[in-house]
């Protein structure tokens, strides 16, 4: 074979492999969508599971936990990323912290769930609750989020810091007014992608946020009431946990339909997060550079 033919052959091979992967994903997602599609209806999304098939409260719980988790994990992850990539760069402390973060990110989520169960639910007596779940998810999310924010900051040229400081601008202002805005598109896509992971997580929540979804009252703003949608101390089964529970307990004739329908909602929401991440970071990129 001459060089031209080799090149053509390699390109053909790569296209075939990529095509096969795309086809597999398409078949996989398509199959799940087709299977669950008949279950999806307005009432499926807007009624409580106590009253029949609905997953209204699970959907809300998933979103509520996601928001609380991001509120808890973003400031910590941002702070650690700044400390590691800017202030502590190349220090021994940063090297140790990075190793710890990597170890934590490869911890199976069921371990985080059980740790949360022992520490939060039992020892601190918080019980199966939104709060326990959000804290467990924060442990689950922190390593990945810190890594992706660090990466986003690392794409900003080092010259920014010297340039800022040489103009008589403080380090802090150079970070907050130059480096972070420039890292923003990358940070946003990191946040949204980690949101997809958090949204679909089940194992970390089974023993922390619990497996029951008490019927919620969306007009009760008193967070101390057991049925208030905002109460952080009530148990909160999410979509992913719901799928797991319905399948293991196999309750009723509708179990299969419910689980397939829930899968569709979960997949669509996570796909939406991914699209949103791309859109947002593209927009921001355009806004910063033009």
């Amino acid at each position: 074979m001459n060089r031209y033919r080799t090149d053509k052959f390699a390109r053909g091979l790569i296209y075939t492999i990529v095509g096969a992967i795309i086809a597999l994903i398409a078949i996989f997602i398509g199959y799940l969508l087709v299977q669950g599609w008949s279950t999806i209806s307005w009432s499926f999304l807007t009624t409580a599971s106590d009253d029949g098939l609905g997953i209204r409260d699970q959907l809300f719980n998933s979103l509520y936990l996601l928001i609380l988790t991001l509120l808890l994990s973003f400031p910590i992850a941002l702070g650690s990323a700044i400390a590691l990539t800017i202030y502590g760069k190349k220090s021994r402390f940063a090297a140790i912290a990075e190793m710890a973060i990597q170890a934590l990110s490869s911890l199976p989520s069921i371990i985080i769930g059980l740790f949360g169960f022992l520490l939060l639910v039992l020892k601190f007596k918080i019980g199966f609750s939104v709060l326990s779940g959000a804290i467990a998810l924060t442990f689950f999310n922190l390593p990945i989020l810190t890594q992706s924010i660090s990466l986003a900051i690392a794409t900003v040229p080092e010259a920014r810091m010297t340039a800022g400081v040489s103009l008589g601008v403080s380090k802090w202002h150079t970070i907050t007014k130059v480096i972070l805005p420039e890292a923003m598109p990358g940070m946003i896509s990191g946040i949204v992608l980690s949101a997809g992971r958090v949204f679909g997580e089940a194992a970390a929540l089974i023993y922390t946020a619990g497996q029951s979804a008490p019927k919620l009252d969306y007009f009760n703003w008193n967070i101390f009431d057991a049925n208030s949608f905002l109460n952080p101390l009530r148990p909160a089964e999410t979509l992913a946990v719901h799928i797991w529970k319905v399948n293991t307990e196999g309750l009723g004739a509708n179990a299969e339909a419910i689980s397939k329908g829930t899968i569709v909602i979960l997949i669509l929401t996570i796909l939406a997060f991914n699209l949103l991440a791309r859109q947002l970071s593209r927009r921001l990129q355009r806004k910063i550079y033009h």
Partner: peptide
């Protein structure tokens, strides 16, 4: 001190802002 003793580098180092905002930044 660094405002009183400013520095220009070999590679130009403008920020990704407008010309105006670059000049007035400090």
């Amino acid at each position: 001190l660094r405002t009183q003793i400013g520095m220009v580098y070999q590679q130009p180092t403008p920020f990704p802002f407008s010309i105006y905002e670059n000049v007035i930044f400090s």
